[in-house]
Amino acid sequence: MQPIEIIVIVACVLIVGGVIFKAIYDKKKGKSSCCCDCSKCTKCYKKDQNDGGENN
């Protein structure tokens, strides 16, 4: 196996693994993988949705 083949295989594994890991990590942290216009939102929409709040 040539060095370039090893480099390409490692790079592909890292890219695919990285993307999958990031998606799982974000999901666990409650973040959405979306965000176009809401990319600046500091709070996850799911978290906000559960914001019932209680007046006191």
Binding site: D48, D51, G52, G53, E54, N55, N56
Partner: peptide, 10 residues
């Protein structure tokens, strides 16, 4: 209105 109200009060 509920979000804003809850935020200011709570």
């Amino acid at each position: 209105e509920v979000i804003a109200r809850n935020y200011i009060l709570d």
